[in-house]
Amino acid sequence: MAAEANSAAGMPQLEFATFPNQVLWLVLALVVLYLILSRIALPRIGSVLAERTGTIANDIAAAETFKLQAAEAEAAYHKALDDARAAAAKVVEEARAEIQKDLDVAIAKADSEIAARSAESERRIAEIRESANEAVTAVAKEATKDILAAFGVKADARSVTATVNARLKESAA
């Protein structure tokens, strides 16, 4: 097998003559790669990752403050709403009180007017009744005189008046 075509003899991995060559290039490649990675690539990627972590943390903190602000705003809104409601209730109460006062005044005025009118009416009724009574008395006296005259009795004016008055009083009672 050692006599195979071109250099297929044996394992190329055990060709010790190529070892210095491989080791040299390997060491060079590793050194170059190490320098590239440690000087350029890794700090850059590391800083990008750190920056991203920082940004995310900042954003979360900012979101937290915004949330607090939103809660504050909500509380202020509710407070304003309550105040407005209270003010509205007060205004309504005042208006109601005002109306009540006006109403009371108007009712009182109306009552007094009614009272005045009814007093007037009563007075006039009383007057009318008075005059009616007088008229009745007068008519009764006249009628009594006439009736007595017709019967040929000369009536004493005074006694007639007294009798009629007594009778009228009786019927009025």
Binding site: T18, N21, I36, I40, A41
Partner: peptide, 19 residues
């Protein structure tokens, strides 16, 4: 050698990806 070539390509490829 081809060792040189492929090691150089490896370094270039890693640099491409990372840098």
């Amino acid at each position: 050698t081809n060792v040189t070539l492929w090691m150089t390509l490896t370094v270039i490829a890693v640099s491409l990806v990372l840098v």
